Computed example of a mutant assay.
Amino acid sequence: MKWFKQITIAALIAVIGFSSVHVADAASKLSGKIVINGSSALLPLTLQAANEFKKANPKVKISASAAGSITGPQAVRKGIADIGAVDWDATKDVPGFKKFDGQVAHKVAVIPFATVVNKNVGVSNLTTKDLQGIFSGKIKNWKDVGGKDAEIIVVNRTFGSGTRVNFQDKALAGEDFMTKGDNYKEVKTSGDMKTAIETTPNAIGYMDLAYVTDKMSALSVNGVAPTEANVINGKYKVWGYGYYMTKGQPTGAVKEFIAYVQSAKFQNGSLKKLKFIPISAMK
């Protein structure tokens, strides 16, 4: 019996070892190169997903860059990117941008956007009317919205930003931004916005929750905090879906990568840890 048990155990080890090799071989069969461009709001999600996907598929190379949402579908149209990351459905017209014909939108995340201020600003809540006044340049001093006597420094994203499109539509109810002034500056990416808000006293701006740090304050809007729970229950309105755009239906490694980002494993794991919300959470 002893030799029989030893043979059985050895056989099981052999089977397990063969299975492991088989799985590894199956995973390594997927190959190719994926180029992703576009939204800086989605960049943390894209980079994390790329790292995880490449571990399971070592023959797939993925490069990702972010210069603003509009560059995503533009790069796909020009053929220089396989995936265009964008903070709106680029198959439809939105204010300021025409739809991109021939592209397919793949919903990958729910993105909560927050109004953020430098830590020295003594304000925790603003109304829609306050935000409209501040970002239009009509309200110039923090004392006019319950803060201290200090000039408001408005930090805006450049035209073409998906975060800007969402913030203007949902936080400002479509009202226009100011475009110049001594108290006004524009930044290109979410990372640039993060740096500007952290280092500029009396500054106000906006970004997705993935970029919010303890070196700044995320404000409530109309008394509602920018939290996952408040987005899901419908109380907090300043959010949007993030999309991956492709030229037609994706195939090969591109198809599998998008499927991984949309999978329950990633959506309920790394995506949530990065302060995005799973697409399945929204009714």
Rank of each mutant, 00 (worst) to 15 (best):
K194V: 06
T199D: 12
T200S: 08
I13S: 13
N118W: 04
T195K: 15
A81S: 13
K275M: 13
I13Q: 10
I111Q: 03
L274D: 03
K107A: 04
F276K: 07
K54F: 00
D130Y: 02
L30V: 06
T128Y: 07
V116L: 08
Y184I: 00
A109M: 09
A105T: 01
N156Y: 11
M178H: 05
K5N: 14
E175G: 08
V231R: 03
N202M: 03
I134L: 06
K5G: 03
K170M: 12
V15Q: 10
G234I: 02
D101G: 14
A64M: 05
N120I: 08
I36V: 15
G252P: 06
F18L: 15
K5S: 07
M207G: 00
E228K: 15
T189Q: 02
A11G: 15
R164M: 14
F113H: 12
P44R: 06
Y236Q: 06
V231A: 06
E186H: 13
S19R: 13
K33A: 10
F18D: 00
K33E: 15
T213V: 09
K215F: 09
G269E: 00
S190N: 10
I34T: 02
K107T: 04
S31M: 08
T128F: 06
I258S: 00
K129I: 09
S263C: 05
K99N: 08
K180W: 05
K180D: 01
A27P: 03
A218E: 05
S20F: 11
L274T: 03
G32W: 12
V212M: 07
T71W: 13
M193P: 05
K92Q: 15
F135D: 00
G84D: 00
W3L: 15
G84I: 03
A41R: 04
R157F: 14
Y236T: 02
Y243I: 01
A10W: 13
Q48L: 12
W88R: 14
V117D: 03
T227F: 14
N230R: 11
K2A: 06
A281P: 05
V123T: 06
T195W: 09
T71F: 14
A196Q: 10
A253P: 02
Q103Y: 11
F113W: 14
I232Q: 07
G191W: 06
G122P: 09
Q103C: 05
D144V: 01
S65C: 08
A26L: 13
K33G: 01
N57W: 07
N233T: 09
K283L: 12
A196R: 05
N37S: 15
R157A: 12
G174M: 07
M282H: 08
N120A: 07
G38F: 05
G147P: 05
A66V: 03
S63N: 13
K194G: 00
V117H: 05
N125D: 15
G174V: 12
G38C: 07
A229G: 07
V94D: 01
F266E: 00
Q74I: 11
A11V: 14
S190P: 03
Q6I: 15
G137C: 09
A85T: 05
E256V: 09
R164Y: 07
I197C: 04
I83W: 13
M193S: 08
P58D: 01
Y244P: 12
T46Q: 06
G17E: 11
S136D: 03
G96A: 10
I80L: 08
A218T: 06
S190I: 02
I277G: 01
K265F: 12
P278H: 05
I80Y: 09
